[in-house]
Design a protein around this nucleic acid. Structure first.
Length: 783
DNA sequence: TTCGGGGCATTTTTT
DNA sequence: ATGCCCCGAA
């Protein structure tokens, strides 16, 4: 098959340019993934480069998976199978999982480089970081009033991403807060080191360190990868830049693909200069612009292009298309957020009725905006997929079990140990933990070693001694189980022995029911991992590096998500909500020129997601917080940057259902429809997704390909399971009643506790699961 | 040690 | 309006 014939001239040029540095500026919708995958296929098939000599790096597992699948399909027939008969494929991975594999593999080098580190390090996510920072704050006598943990974590992360060490941070601090933060930073680093843990930033930093200081390790890496490709290059930070540099010197067969106009992660440390200065950093680099857009209508492209042309920090690209102008961009201004939301729902309804096979998305700047839009969609009985919220691996019960495993695998991992030392409650309370922590501080031992030391001394009160001794033998037994049998059996044993399962069962609530299902799913995932031959460590790595958005269901007809999460996706109809000053551009970004430019790029990203129809909406006034005042808003400056000739203002009656009912009188009828509507599509965080979170991503399977095809099939119906205690009948919202909640929509009352205003209701909502509500506070309506 | 009530802040978040 | 953190009572 001559796959090069399927490319346009520019794309083909990019694919065939294989030697030396290459920068591909790929505008939105210009076939970027196509170019990367074809380029890989070209190198392998036509230039006979062994697949193992190629490395492609992406930012998300999802992108990596997609790329792998597409390369596999391209190579499908003719590439050379490996001796064992499997298809040999290049290494496609995220920056982070690449770093982890490198560090685990080159563990010896790492240990030599860094005192006290072992290749068995734990990976700490944001929740773990906060736990570490809490301890550091306490040690320094600070509290969150100084700086919220999350902000401190963000600032430390930012410093790390720029390669600024704590001492350096201290040196350049100009105010007392920064000085203190430098100390926090230093203590945080020390705490991680003691715990033999690396945070996400460290994974990259340590990989860079290793390659810099361990000549042999670098030689091995450079020798292995002759061709490197980096996707979304505009989102790389300084450390990723260094990593790429180390991997490509001196061969310099580096191909980076990106779009400076889609750089929207500056606040996370991404450095737009990496892409702007590529030609300077890699002299002799070839620059190829992909400007033909295959996604959107001309009107949409022109509008987006006009907006982003107001930016100065760009190389400049002009997207063009052979498509026709298409519809104008609709602009709607509602009285308030509720009215805006109703318009959005009506607009989606109209579009999908006319185009039943198409997909629509509502994009917004901040997550709280989804609430009213959800409510409006529910009124129309329209199912949707809300992207955001807690992912599976971030859930408390899953994190607990993983913490048991981490603590067992790495005795130094004090923060994982801390998490589960008294979960379920086993009589090791706050004061006992503090006692051990103090001992840790005095001796410099890890929490676990300190615990053992205290037990050996026998100086503890009988009660705590017994509790701690019990815990000690529990962990020893867990280690033994992990060493002797399959992982999932160890987990089952753990759940029984600790009484974790019992704890949830005894709770007897609907929430606990869900948690039980989650832990069962984790056990299944462990069994699958075991069947694939994964070790505990690999299982834990996988769990740490998998992200929730990886499983974004593309089959959903209506998707609600933030502008940030929309990058890389496309929808027939795109509605951008909340086009108001202060909201978008967001007030916190509006005071610097670079912040404003990033907001503008975000606007560009949002607009270019639309294939056929783009709709911009705003509200004349909206409430800032729940109970706040209605505050008037001003239209976003981005609206003015769209040429007026491309815009069409629509009244609330401009977009209507065919029946001719208007938005205001219609509500009650619509509610009636909604009541009978069956929700379809799987919930973003539903249990059935969990297995997929842990599914192997290494080798594309027929099942994976089938799943892709199946994405076009209608989503299966989901029935919210109702289990748990038998509902008691009572007045008002009694069990079994259908109620409506402003945020969660329509749900079923499962249980009622107490009477009158103080009654507590347990309600099951599709998409949101089980919520406990106080009748007095929750604005519930009887359906 | 553990549970429940009142105070407080609430942008975005690839790994 | 809500979620989460800390403090006081059982």
């Amino acid at each position: 098959m001559d796959f090069l014939g399927q490319l346009n001239p520019r794309q083909r040029e990019a694919v065939e340019h294989t030697e030396g540095p290459l920068l591909i500026l790929a505008g939105a919708g210009s076939g970027k993934t196509r170019v990367i995958t074809y380029r890989i296929a070209h190198l392998i098939r036509n230039n006979h480069v062994p697949p193992s000599r190629l490395l492609a790096v992406t930012f998300t597992n999802k992108a990596a998976e997609e790329m792998r699948d597409r390369v596999a399909i391209l190579l499908g027939g003719g590439s050379s199978p490996a001796p064992d008969g499997t298809l040999s494929l290049p290494w496609v991975s995220t920056f982070h999982s690449f770093a982890v594999r490198l560090l685990r593999r080159e563990g010896g080098g790492l240990e030599a480089l860094r005192q006290g580190f072992t290749a068995r390090f734990s990976i700490y996510d944001e929740a773990d970081q906060v736990a570490v920072l809490k301890a550091v704050y306490r040690q320094l006598g600070l509290d969150e009033k100084f700086l919220p943990y999350r902000s401190a974590a963000a600032r430390i992360s930012h410093a790390k991403n720029q390669g600024i060490a704590p001492e350096h941070y201290y040196g350049r601090s100009t105010n007392p807060q920064d000085e203190k933060l430098a100390v926090i930073y230093e203590q945080y680093e020390a705490a991680l080191r003691r715990a033999n843990a690396l945070d996400f930033d460290d994974l990259l930093l340590e990989a860079v360190r290793l390659l810099r200081h361990d000549e042999q390790a670098r030689a091995r890496a450079v020798d292995r990868f002759h061709y490197l490709m980096v996707d979304e290059y505009q989102d790389t930070n300084r450390v990723q830049y260094d990593l790429v540099r180390l991997l490509t010197e001196p061969r310099r067969n580096l191909c980076v693909v990106g779009d400076e106009d889609q750089s929207i992660y500056g606040w996370r440390g991404a450095d737009i200069r990496n892409i702007l200065d590529f030609e300077r950093d890699y002299p002799g680099a070839t620059l190829i612009r992909l400007e033909q857009n295959y996604r959107s209508t001309k009107n949409i492209l022109d509008a987006a292009g006009q907006v982003v042309s107001h930016n100065l920090e760009r190389k400049g690209k002009e997207l063009w298309t052979t498509a026709g102008p298409g519809s104008k961009i609709l602009l709607y201004r509602g009285e308030d957020a509720e009215n805006e939301a109703l318009f959005i729902a009506a607009c989606i309804e109209k579009h999908l009725r006319q185009n039943p096979s198409e997909r629509a998305a509502v994009l917004y700047r901040t997550n709280f905006q989804s609430r009213q839009i959800e409510e409006a969609l529910r009124r129309y009985g329209r199912s949707y997929l809300l992207v955001g919220g807690l992912s599976f691996y971030q859930r408390a019960e899953v994190k607990d079990l993983l913490a048991y495993l981490k603590a067992a695998v790495s005795p130094q991992d004090s923060y994982s140990l801390l998490r589960i030392i008294n979960t379920p409650a086993r009589g090791i309370g706050k004061s006992t933990v503090e006692l051990i922590a103090r001992h840790t501080g005095e001796t410099g031992l890890s929490l676990w070693a300190s615990l053992e030391d205290l037990l050996a001394r026998g100086s503890l009160a009988a009660r705590s001694h017994a509790a701690l001794a019990g815990f000690q033998s529990l962990m020893k037994d867990l280690r033994a189980h992990l060493g002797s049998g399959p992982l999932h059996q160890a987990l089952v044993w753990l759940l029984d022995t600790t009484g974790y399962r019992k704890m949830l069962e005894q709770e007897g609530t609907i929430e606990s029911q869900g948690r039980l299902e989650n832990i069962d799913e984790l056990v299944n995932a462990a069994a699958d991992a075991g069947a694939r031959g994964e070790t505990v460590e690999e299982f834990l790595d996988h769990a740490a590096l998998v992200a929730d958005t990886d499983d974004l269901d593309e089959a959903a007809q209506v998707t609600l998500l933030t502008l940030h999460m929309a990058k890389g996706l496309e929808f027939s109809l795109v509605i951008m909500a909340g086009m108001e000053e202060g909201l978008f551009p967001h007030s916190r970004s509006a005071d610097t020129a670079s912040g404003l430019e990033e907001e503008r790029r975000l606007c560009y990203v949002g607009m270019t997601r639309a294939q056929k129809q783009l709709v911009l909406t705003l509200a004349r006034s909206r409430r800032r917080f729940g109970g706040g005042e209605l505050e008037p808003g001003r239209p976003s400056r981005f609206l003015r940057e769209v040429p007026a000739r491309l815009l069409e203002e629509v009244s609330p009656f401009g977009v209507q259902l065919e029946e001719g009912v208007d938005l205001y009188t219609e509500r009650h009828e619509v509610q009636e429809i909604a009541r009978h509507h069956t929700f379809t599509g799987k919930t973003y965080n539903s249990v059935e997704n969990i297995a997929e979170f842990f599914a192997a991503r290494g080798i594309p399977t027929p099942a994976a390909a089938a799943r892709r095809t199946a994405a076009e099939a209608p989503a299966r119906a989901q029935v919210t399971p109702i289990r748990g205690p038998t509902p008691k009948a009572a007045g008002g919202f009694r069990a079994g009643a259908r109620v409506h909640h402003p945020k969660y929509g329509t749900g079923t009352v499962l249980r009622k506790e107490g009477e009158g205003d103080d009654a507590k209701l347990t309600v099951s909502f599709p998409y949101h699961g089980i919520k406990k509500l106080i009748q007095k506070y929750a604005t519930l309506r009887q359906e």
